[in-house]
Nucleic acid binder design. Structure first.
Ligand SMILES: NC(=O)c1ccc[n+]([C@@H]2O[C@H](COP(=O)([O-])OP(=O)(O)OC[C@H]3O[C@@H](n4cnc5c(N)ncnc54)[C@H](O)[C@@H]3O)[C@@H](O)[C@H]2O)c1
Ligand SMILES: NC(=O)c1ccc[n+]([C@@H]2O[C@H](COP(=O)([O-])OP(=O)(O)OC[C@H]3O[C@@H](n4cnc5c(N)ncnc54)[C@H](O)[C@@H]3O)[C@@H](O)[C@H]2O)c1
Lengths: 215, 215
DNA sequence: CGTGGCTTGTGAAAGAGTTCACAAGAACAT
DNA sequence: ATGTTCTTGTGAACTCTTTCACAAGCCACG
């Protein structure tokens, strides 16, 4: 095993393996091979083994992997031994939907608290999560030891919120605002952009017509 | 120019360039260099030029790219000369949020119609989009010439809906359900999975502790 | 206890994607 | 015209990721 640079694609696949293993675990499957794992997420068996080999040796030759053990190992690799403490900023349309997204908890993430600038929004609970005014942001982020913030504000204020969040010891941000964020390098940032995914589909759909043109 | 296999990362970056160009266009900028484009999305100038060279030659040596022209070219590459016709299945929490997501239209996508199985949900408009019962699905998908379907149903029924959608001449699916979908190869499918992105963040956060270990 | 069947873990090969580095233009000044 | 400056477009080099192929190891069975 060599803990060098792990590629983003490897991490993505680890998540997919984990999903699969949880399903298998629920279904009572006890042992799984790299072929099964590969089939379950649409990759190759060699890829599965290479991915895992980045972190150690988890299977038995001739037998495969013990589902429960591999699940626990991947959870540990992904840093999910304890639920991650998450806060949400911007309890609008998409923010509220996320507050009501129950699967997050079973995937290892707990939204502890939410914030909004609008008096209509704060001061109540949405799907059992308290929504607080923005002036309590820094204080509560550190008091609640929040690790990850989900940004669901309008793009125009995303940078400003990101700055305040960064200053509060949070380690990662998942942003739904399409705007680019300038953050200091110690902070991990990811984006989710529905339109960008749709643009990807649009390209594929068009390409299906124009097919193979040479040189 | 050679229209071979365009990588997913290239397409992703094209979307980012397009966003940037639209902002520049709004700001009145007329000409842009590969260096500016690169800076705006966090890549290198060479990468920008390589990406574009897959599709032709869009700049003037010594000068750069004309913002309006490059914007139009990328829109055309991504198949966004006309708004794409989109339908949504599952007008629940996240589905409704998407129906109210106005930026989709400015990015080139129009949600024409939505469907739900729940009588509480269908028979009214949500953010001006009519929500119809599922028994009208096939008929309306083809009548409205829908190109892309956004799947926002519970994971358990996603496959079943995907099957019906495939049979109705739709070219692409964007699914919010984490479950794997078996679809025929002519259909383009993408996933958005909040938990998967959070898992990616969780990994990075953990890795920040364990740092560089050798061999 | 040895043999056969099966699956892992991993170097080496192949394939993709990114970065480098520079010739080919384009504008503009002299 | 000619020279200077600037930025594109693109082969070639490099780096990263995936696939191949097989020795090593485990279990079952005789
Ligand atoms: N609605 C969707 O389906 C959708 C999908 C993808 C991405 N997005 C993006 O997600 C973000 C939110 O979209 P939405 O549709 O939920 O918008 P929204 O207007 O419904 O919600 C935004 C919320 O942010 C709050 N807010 C505004 N300024 C704030 C500030 N300075 N600090 C804290 N909170 C503040 C508002 O009060 C509001 O509750 C936007 O960036 C949007 O582009 C939305
Ligand atoms: N809520 C979130 O923030 C969130 C985030 C990411 C992903 N998701 C995923 O998106 C999907 C929807 O989540 P949600 O939170 O909006 O759930 P939800 O229960 O609020 O909405 C689901 C909707 O689908 C409808 N539906 C159920 N069966 C159907 C069928 N056979 N045909 C058509 N419609 C049907 C329901 O009536 C409901 O309106 C789920 O797969 C969920 O895992 C949700």
């Amino acid at each position: 095993m060599n803990l060098r640079k792990i590629s983003e694609s490897t991490v993505r696949r680890l998540s997919l393996y984990l999903n699969l293993l949880r399903d298998m675990s629920d279904a009572g499957t006890e042992v799984v091979s790299s072929v099964d794992l590969a089939g379950g997420i649409g990759t190759t068996a060699a890829q599965v083994r290479k991915d895992l080999s980045n972190f150690g040796s988890f299977g038995k030759r001739g037998q495969g992997y013990v589902v429960e053990d591999l699940r626990a190992s991947i959870e540990s690799i992904l840093g999910l031994v304890r639920p991650r403490r998450v806060a949400l900023v911007g309890a609008g349309k998409i923010g509220s939907a996320l507050l009501g997204y129950r699967d997050l908890r079973t995937r290892g993430f707990e939204i502890i608290v939410a914030f909004d600038i609008d008096p209509e929004k704060y001061g109540r609970k949405v799907f059992d999560v308290p929504v607080l005014p923005m002036d309590q942001l820094e204080q509560r982020l550190s008091a609640d030891r929040i690790e990850i913030v989900i940004l669901a504000t309008p793009p125009a204020v995303a940078q400003e919120v990101a700055n305040r969040v960064t200053a509060s010891g949070v380690a990662g941000i998942l942003s739904f605002a399409a705007s680019k964020l300038e953050t200091d390098a110690t902070l991990a940032v990811r984006w989710m952009d529905v339109a960008l995914e749709l643009e990807g589909l649009s390209f594929l759909i068009s390409a299906a017509g124009n097919e193979v043109e040479e040189s």
